[in-house]
Each structure stands twice: as structure tokens, then as C-alpha cells.
Amino acid sequence: MDVFMKGLSKAKEGVVAAAEKTKQGVAEAAGKTKEGVLYVGSKTKEGVVHGVATVAEKTKEQVTNVGGAVVTGVTAVAQKTVEGAGSIAAATGFVKKDQLGKNEEGAPQEGILEDMPVDPDNEAYEMPSEEGYQDYEPEA
């Protein structure tokens, strides 16, 4: 019985440690998101679009440190934060509304985080759909 109880105690310690790591990862992701939003706020009209992409990228980098179902929630929060940063930029006159959601080359930025393969159960990952990809044929 002692062996059984000791095993359960060790398992509990492992769960607590994993929860603490997840909590730490979420806190880091939130900190990076805040950094990115402050970065966007300090940019001029020309830099705002690039700044919004930076927020998304920093958040995406930190999301990889967070495991399990938390990833889905962090990704949703990050996307809403990026959308909010863009709205703030438009409201303050840093950028025109028609410039939001495009990178410096004018290509749409939507789907940055949505296409990231995420499995809350950590069982399997699927690649994003290939609808947006084109076949590449090298020139002879």
C-alpha cells in the first residue's frame, strides 16, 4: 500500500510541476504579447503594419512553449490582441483601416495563427491545408 501511495504522490508532483510550467509559459506569452502591443503603439504610420505582424510573430513563438489545451486559448487571445492593436492603430490615425491585415508588401496577414497546427491532446499534428499553395516548377 505504501508503494501505491508513494507512486500516487510522485504522479501528483509531476502534474503540479507540469501545471506550473504551463502557467509560466502562458505568463511569458502574455508578456511578449504586451511587449508587441507597446511596440505597435510606438510606431509611426509606416511601421504600424509591420508592428502588428511582430506582435503576432512574438506571440506565436511563445505559444510553442505552452502545451496542451492552453495553446488553443493563448492563440485565440493573441489573435484578438493583434486585431485590437490594429483597431487602436486605425482609431489613433497611425494607419488607414484599409491597410490593416496586410503586410508591407500588401499581402493579407489573416491566418497567421489560424494555420498553425495545434492539437490540445498532444496526440497528432496535421499540416495546414494546401489550398493556398501553388506547385513550383523550376525553369529549365
Rank of each mutant, 00 (worst) to 15 (best):
79 Q>Y: 10
45 K>P: 01
87 S>W: 15
135 D>N: 12
123 E>P: 10
72 T>S: 05
102 K>G: 03
44 T>P: 01
139 E>C: 03
78 A>D: 00
12 K>E: 01
130 E>A: 08
73 G>W: 09
126 E>V: 11
23 K>F: 09
24 Q>T: 09
108 P>M: 04
35 E>A: 14
22 T>H: 01
120 P>D: 04
124 A>V: 08
31 G>C: 01
133 Y>P: 07
47 G>D: 12
86 G>A: 12
55 V>P: 00
122 N>I: 03
7 G>F: 05
80 K>E: 01
59 T>C: 12
96 K>A: 11
113 L>Y: 14
80 K>R: 07
63 V>P: 00
91 A>T: 06
98 D>W: 12
36 G>S: 14
39 Y>Q: 06
4 F>P: 00
60 K>A: 14
52 V>M: 14
110 E>H: 03
119 D>A: 10
17 A>T: 13
85 A>M: 12
116 M>C: 13
23 K>N: 00
72 T>W: 03
132 G>H: 09
84 G>E: 10
118 V>N: 13
113 L>W: 08
103 N>M: 10
8 L>C: 03
71 V>R: 11
30 A>G: 03
96 K>V: 08
17 A>E: 04
129 S>K: 05
120 P>G: 08
60 K>D: 00
29 A>W: 13
88 I>Y: 10
62 Q>W: 09
55 V>D: 00
13 E>L: 04
57 E>N: 14
100 L>M: 15
136 Y>C: 11
80 K>F: 08
113 L>F: 09
50 H>R: 10
10 K>L: 10
139 E>A: 01
64 T>A: 05
107 A>S: 14
96 K>Y: 11
28 E>C: 05
54 T>R: 15
47 G>E: 05
11 A>Y: 01
29 A>H: 06
28 E>P: 02
21 K>D: 01
125 Y>D: 13
130 E>L: 14
137 E>W: 05
58 K>C: 03
62 Q>P: 02
37 V>S: 03
30 A>W: 14
110 E>K: 12
126 E>T: 07
33 T>A: 09
19 A>I: 06
100 L>V: 15
118 V>K: 08
111 G>K: 06
1 M>N: 00
26 V>P: 00
35 E>T: 13
31 G>I: 07
137 E>A: 12
1 M>K: 00
105 E>R: 14
100 L>Q: 13
79 Q>S: 07
26 V>A: 06
